[in-house]
Design a protein around this nucleic acid. Structure first.
Lengths: 341, 341
DNA sequence: GCGCTAACTGTTACCGATAACATTGACAAA
DNA sequence: TTTGTCAATGTTATCGGTAACAGTTAGCGC
């Protein structure tokens, strides 16, 4: 590999040209006091003329901070093609722009014993967004390590451990309420439910909400109406036939994710039934695909972009204000009416 | 902001514990010679016991190389929700895993005068993937700067400038051939075409291929059959009515992107026509949505993941082998048959 | 036993920034 | 004039590594 002698412009080059010490240039670059306006002007002009660009790496090393946002997600070869995550990442990217930080991605392979803290140390990440934790492992020590070392972080979505941490999630109860209220308003009394992954944060919450609200809206209370999915398209395809096979078929199905709803729709259509005439379908998430399926999927929109952005905001606030209490933001969802109900 | 005294384990801590110089530890960590196996063992054990993790930032600073892959994409608030890009990014992420590099994202705002080279210098990025260049600006000087400073890069997709650079694209001619051949085999003679963005790399190529191949397959040569879109859903929705309004309606429509095809499908269905009975629709890309629309969209699959991965591979090869000639890889596409034809 | 070489280990400078501290100089007060 | 103060600037150590080079030791031949 070649080595390139000619390196780029540094504060020392500027200092030499301006006839001052490099520390003075540093003061100017960081917009700090103790430099006369005239000298500041001069140095800025020289820096500009020479095309100076600060070396973020050197800055990181001395300050132990990397002006980046590190997004850590579980090892999953298809992470990036799950549009649900993508929309969140879009929000994070917008926040990065706002705070002038670069965006870094790391996949965490817990089976190899990798920890969140290790990643932060290795790359001097001081602001971390932790996505979709695998709750089958205990990460409370990891969280403590992050805390002890001044690394600020937010969870996406809700953190289930007992520590008080920043996290952003959707208000699942409200989302389920919107969905069931709408179904009730359309005259449905018998509503099937396909539950999400029980090991996730959202799965059980939506399930609980369905349990209590379906009672409140006077829907049939029948265990047969409840199917157990895991948020994926495939699980929707797998569970729907059970609901369709019931002696007393539901008039509507509410799936805890759009992917499951779309899987369910496919099965319904394959059986020659019409949506929404024979059976209505309601999703949850409003992923991109929901708009493209036929008929359009009525669903509960999670403001995913907003959630990504808020997660960064929270971590930044923790960083800037020592007294800021870590908090969980539950974002209000919204009903998106399309043709499936 | 708090300052944290207790810093993490460094090679010096290990050196102290092992009773050697820190440079010896560095040799061990980099797996270099001149260290006896016994000592190497001992140092590795201590490092492991103390939970040592190399500081990549310090490493980057001295070596002027960050172990990262920097993906630079044009400023676009919705970049991340275009699944076409996402699938490519997934491939890049897989390559990062393979080469043990972290993944960084940068959006480039050319209107602010930001350059690719500036980004590389600011973050010591030595391996860059340049996505979807805005060809309305001249970037040849920028490319020269990257070259002169030993920064390796690949374009995604094809670079249109005259310089010889690494780039990965789909074989558009072959893709169009697959599509038209299939339509011909189904007996179509009158095939409408919705062209893609003329300022992109792929748009004109697909257009040219359609021009020459539709002749070869004996399709009607009629300028009215050609509509000008820009790859987006909206442009498909906008152009399709023109084709449907022709005196002699085409029996099939081939759109240069899935998004346009899906937009076209929506219009066709709204006019009460049936797909594929009244008119067939063929797309290009095989984005995620193609599988979810109704009927499933027959399309030409771009192996996007593979393309992302190959782009990184090329840049790595350039880096490791000085004599490696920059090249353009044209990946072979594949026909995905669904129900729309 | 001596010198030479190979094998290993230690010393030191450096990457490009920040920051604590030292120094200078102007000006006001004593 | 002397002293004190404070703003402006310079000196130097430092972050955690890498690498050139210097130094030490062991083993070998003569």
């Amino acid at each position: 590999m070649k080595r390139f002698e000619k390196s780029s412009i540094t504060i020392k080059d500027i200092a030499k040209k301006a006839g001052v010490a490099h520390s003075t240039v540093s003061l100017v670059m960081n917009d700090r006091e103790h430099v006369s306006p005239k000298l500041r002007e001069k140095i800025l002009k020289i820096a500009n003329d020479m095309g100076y660009m600060p070396n973020m790496v050197a800055r990181s090393l001395i300050s132990k901070k990397s002006s980046t946002v590190g997004v850590v997600f579980p090892e999953n070869p298809h992470f990036f093609t799950i549009t649900y995550f993508l929309m969140i990442i879009e929000g994070i990217q917008n926040a990065c722009k706002k705070y002038n930080r670069a965006l870094m991605f790391f996949s965490l392979d817990q089976t190899k014993g990798e920890s969140y803290y290790q990643i932060s140390r290795k790359w001097l990440i001081d602001l971390m967004i932790i996505m979709n934790v695998d709750y089958t492992r205990d990460i409370s020590k990891d969280i403590q390590d992050l805390r002890d070392n001044g690394i600020y972080f937010s969870f996406l979505t809700k953190y289930l451990g007992k520590e008080k941490v920043n996290s952003v999630c959707v208000d699942n109860y409200e989302g389920v309420r919107l969905a069931l209220e709408y179904l009730a308003s359309q005259g449905h009394k018998r509503v099937g439910f396909i539950a999400g992954n029980p090991n996730s944060a959202d799965g059980p919450e939506r399930f609980q909400a369905y349990r209590s609200l379906s009672k409140k809206f006077g829907f049939d209370q029948d265990e047969e109406l409840i199917a157990q999915g895991d948020f994926t398209f495939e699980s929707g395809e797998r569970e729907m036939p059970k609901l369709l096979g019931l002696k007393k078929r539901p008039t509507a199905v509410f799936a805890a994710s759009d992917y499951m709803a779309i899987g369910a729709m496919r099965v319904i259509k394959e059986q020659g039934l019409s949506i929404p005439k024979d059976i209505s379908v309601m999703g949850f998430d409003n992923t991109l695909e929901a708009a493209y399926v036929e008929p359009g999927l009525t669903t509960v929109r999670q403001p995913l972009q907003e959630m990504g952005e808020k997660a960064v905001d929270l971590a930044i606030r923790s960083m800037n204000d020592e007294n800021f209490e870590p908090q969980t933001l539950a974002i209000k969802p919204e009903l998106i009416k399309r043709q499936s109900c």
